[in-house]
Design a protein around this nucleic acid. Structure first.
Length: 424
DNA sequence: CCTGGAGTTGTCCTA
DNA sequence: TTAGGACAACTCCAG
């Protein structure tokens, strides 16, 4: 008996899943699989909360399938080796996936597609993660956008509310129940930090609250978009006309996905080489203070502590902490980017990279280099009653809280000078 | 090809 | 107290 395989990656849901729906319409039974990729996992701590979240999400899918005498086959190893074994053990006709736009994933998929092809197996991938992908929103001459506003205008001009996939019958799943390995068997243990459930109702207050870090008014959609436990089509189909500011943020997400695809050099280099000459100080002990939230600037420290303790950080505070690292401490944005990548539950290469380059002033459509946030001004504006900083800095106001590690005016003019000298 | 308007999220100084 | 301009030009993009 021939099988169709649906390979789950970052689309960890049954509802409104493009590739899965397509697979279930093929003539064969569908075996869903997931591969815990050793090459990615080996970089992580053994209590990484994101692995916990992936595991929990798979467990939910598996439980649902088990109600229908089916299951998810969970494997661990290097994807290429795993696929070699799968080809031997099963009679596979085709493999269905949702497209992934990150450099590592693109390369992985190319290799596996070639491997499958050599065995006469079809590899199909579908647009699912985004509304418009890399080549769909382009300038009239066919080249990609590098500025957000014209990109967004084109996006909105083309946009029609997407159809979500209708519910399906479970009858076409392959009727085998595999036991799911435990988290420990995968080499991980449970984490104290948890991904929170999303709340689409919060989207209504987004525009007025997005600048106020104390208002717990965020939707917490980030990790769910990252791992596909909700579909972006579903989110957008729930939006009202007055949610335009929130929609804008989803368009930013697609803007940076598109930038990463079309300009892959941004992963390691400045989008604008003009700034390649900026000499970073890259002081290790300064960096450590920033990481640990002990800079002496409460807005920066509160943000870093929120990140360290919860895996989340408010949008406004991400800008302030990032700007502080690049401008006040003159530390290479890549250091900060790597730290956020390690800690953020909603870490996404394209957005993280795009926004760090924005903060550093080296990116496409970035903040001008001379725009330097004043952390005390930001505190006055966005946390007037100091409730956010007091929430995260318990020793605030006591001797235990450090003095500012660098004086603002001095750091500001030092940064301006470094950028002016480094620019070409 | 030329042209003109515009560009996520600020801050500081001066009048 | 507050409003306006400087910061620094440059590149992008549509017409």
């Amino acid at each position: 008996m021939k099988l169709t395989i649906h390979w789950f990656r970052r689309d960890l849901r049954l509802a409104d899943n493009t590739a899965l729906s397509e697979a279930l319409e093929s003539k064969n039974n569908v075996l869903p699989i997931f591969i815990f990729d050793e090459e990615i996992l080996s970089e992580l701590r053994d209590d990484d909360p994101r692995v916990n979240f992936i595991y929990d999400s798979l467990k939910l899918i598996d439980q649902k399938l088990k109600e229908h005498n089916s299951s998810v086959l969970c494997l661990k190893g290097k994807p290429f080796e795993i696929w070699k074994k799968l080809i031997q053990n099963y009679s596979i006709e085709s493999v269905y996936t949702n497209k992934d736009y990150e450099p590592y994933a693109k390369e992985r998929d190319l290799k596996i597609k070639a491997l499958l092809k050599a065995h006469g197996i079809e590899f199909l991938s579908f647009k699912d993660q985004v509304i418009y992908e890399e080549q769909e929103i382009v300038k009239n001459d066919g080249s990609p956008y590098t500025m957000f506003t014209p990109y967004k205008n084109k996006w909105l001009r083309l946009f029609t509310c997407p159809d979500t996939k209708p519910p399906f019958s479970f009858i076409n799943f392959y009727k085998v129940t595999f036991q799911m390995p435990s988290l420990e068997e995968i080499g991980f243990q449970s984490s104290n930090i948890r991904v929170r459930n999303y709340d689409l109702l919060k989207v209504d207050d987004y525009a007025e609250n997005r600048d106020l870090p104390i208002n717990d008014s965020t939707s917490y959609l980030g990790p769910h978009l990252r791992f596909g436990t909700i579909s972006v089509r579903h989110i957008i189909s729930q939006l009202k006309p007055q949610n335009d500011v929130f929609l804008s943020e989803l368009i930013w997400r697609e803007f940076f996905i598109q930038i990463l695809h079309n300009y892959p050099h941004v992963v390691h280099q400045n989008f604008r080489s003009k700034y390649d000459g900026v000499e970073w100080l890259n002081n290790n002990s300064d960096f450590e203070k920033w990481c640990n939230g002990r800079t002496g600037y409460p807005m920066v420290d509160a943000g870093m502590r929120q990140l360290n303790e919860t895996g989340y950080m408010h949008n406004r505070v991400r800008m302030i902490t990032a700007g502080f690292l690049c401008k006040h401490l003159l530390i290479d944005w890549r250091w900060g980017e790597a730290y956020f990548a390690k800690k953020l539950l909603d870490y996404e290469l394209s957005s993280n990279n795009g926004n760090w380059q924005w903060a550093a002033g080296t990116g496409c459509d970035a903040a001008p280099y001379f725009r330097i946030f004043n952390p005390m001004e930001q505190l006055k504006k966005f946390d007037k009653d100091k409730s956010y900083i007091k929430k995260w800095i318990t020793e605030y106001g006591s001797d235990a809280y450090p003095e500012p590690m660098v004086e603002h005016t001095f750091a500001r003019s030092r940064a301006l000078k470094a950028y002016q000298i480094g620019m070409n």
